[in-house]
Design a binder for these strands. Structure first.
Length: 199
DNA sequence: AACGAAGTCAACCGCTAATTT
DNA sequence: GAAATTAGCGGTTGACTTCGT
């Protein structure tokens, strides 16, 4: 697509970059079938694509992976993204993990092009209608998750209002959790009635 | 029809975390 | 335990498409 190679594993030699061709996709898929979707550096070499491992991984995860859904994000999915974003912030891979067949990149793009705009509009209308009483702090949607207690997982303050077990929360082995009930559990109505309104 | 603006999305970059040597 | 390597993530870019004038 563009620009000169930069420093990292991908750039020690001149690598192919930019849009993938059907032939490259086929070679990559073949190679992954043989070696599995791991060891991307190895796959990059074995496939003979002259692409870096990073690039191969991204292509596989976003396009070639089986069961991937493209486009047409449903109302339910959109609602789920909104709620998860409120809960998690810009942790796209975690959000994607709760939306079967969706990729972090797709969700991130969808957020940036659709949802962030919707939210900004909503904010504006709220501001104009309730300019007088400003007791409730303005909600910042970008990268400001509800604080969660992550002590069992990674970093976290522990000083949270919404406490839950991260391990339980991200136990993706629990199939069938695709829905809103589980997230409602953590998102007791906090004044964000517009989410409810919009349904 | 032509052109610029705005929107979309695939792909890359830079960084950190995890793993291997 | 330290250093090197690899994997994964979120942010950003820019080519392409669509829309408005």
């Amino acid at each position: 697509m563009r620009m000169a190679p930069k420093k990292d594993g991908c750039t020690k030699e001149i690598m192919n970059r930019g849009a993938w061709t059907a032939e490259e996709d086929r070679k990559l898929a073949e190679c992954i079938e043989i070696h599995g979707a791991k060891r991307w550096k190895t796959i990059a070499v074995k496939s003979g694509l002259n692409r870096c491992g990073k690039s191969c991984r991204l292509r596989w995860l976003n396009y070639l992976r089986p069961n991937i859904k493209r486009g047409n994000i449903s109302d339910e999915e959109e609602d789920l993204i909104l709620r998860l974003h409120k809960l998690l912030g810009n942790r796209w891979s975690l959000i994607a993990g709760r939306l079967p067949g969706r990729t972090d990149n797709e969700i991130k793009n969808y957020w940036n092009s659709h949802l962030s705009k919707k939210i900004n509009q909503k904010e504006k209308t709220v501001e104009t209608t309730s300019s007088a009483q400003e007791s409730i702090p303005k909600k910042k949607w970008d990268a400001s998750p509800v604080e969660v207690n992550e002590e069992s997982g990674s970093k976290g303050s522990g000083n949270s209002e919404v406490c839950f077990d991260v391990d339980e929360f991200f136990d993706f082995s629990a199939e069938g959790s695709y829905g809103l009930d589980w997230v409602n559990k953590f998102l007791e109505l906090d004044g964000d009635s517009w989410l409810a309104e919009k349904r």
